[in-house]
Amino acid sequence: MAIVEATGIHKHFGALHVLKGVDLVVQEKELVFVIGPSGSGKSTLLRCLNRLEEPSGGAIIVDGVDMLSPRTDINKARQRIGMVFQSFNLYPHMTALGNVTLALRKVLGLPKAEAEKRGQAALDRVHLADRAGHFPGQLSGGQQQRVAIARAIALEPRVMLFDEPTSALDPELVGGVLEAMRELRQDGMTMVVVSHEMAFARAAADRVVFMADGAIVEQGTPDEVFGNPQHERTKAFIGQIGRH
């Protein structure tokens, strides 16, 4: 069953045409990895899926809900779509637990005790139960990003979007975040990941999508895309990554 069905997505920023009719279908429990050179539109595509960016054209169905319909309650729809950002975006004035429980209380309307129980459980899933009372400024970058993951999964979303979740981290902190993502995947979470972590893509992705110039150039299993790329641009990109 398809959780995400995006068809013919276009996005213009003024004169700039950054998405040129992209189709992306993500099946339940699938982990789709989106790669491509910077400026290829992969982050924009991700941000269109929960309408942080307003697509200029196309259709997006997430878990049976038409995201672009004016009748859709966008705040309600976004509860089913978790998002993790490159720069964590934790609320600096709230503790880790406060970050995780805010939406539980204000969006789902859970009572405080109930929200904190669920929030604590979410922090436990990213192995940060003991950091619940810490403020973001007191946590390492890797811990902050794991709190951000907990904030998203606490709402029990149907799909998780990761927008370069490890790009802002020091190399030694990347592992913990990837581990949390791996565990999430084992629990059967549907995930769309924009990232440059190619080793992680090879090991964990069901499908790799290569984008360039606002369009999907090719896609397939990690073995197909990394081992035997068909398109010139893919070859060039993979070759470049390999040399690093």
């Binding site: 705040n75 976004r78 509860q79 978790g82 720069s87 609320y91 805010l102 939406a103 904030r151």
Partner: peptide, 15 residues
């Protein structure tokens, strides 16, 4: 306040 704060909050369904 950084734009990311708005985006993070809105992505969790806050109005």
């Amino acid at each position: 306040v950084p734009k990311g704060q708005w985006e993070a909050a809105r992505s969790t369904g806050l109005g």
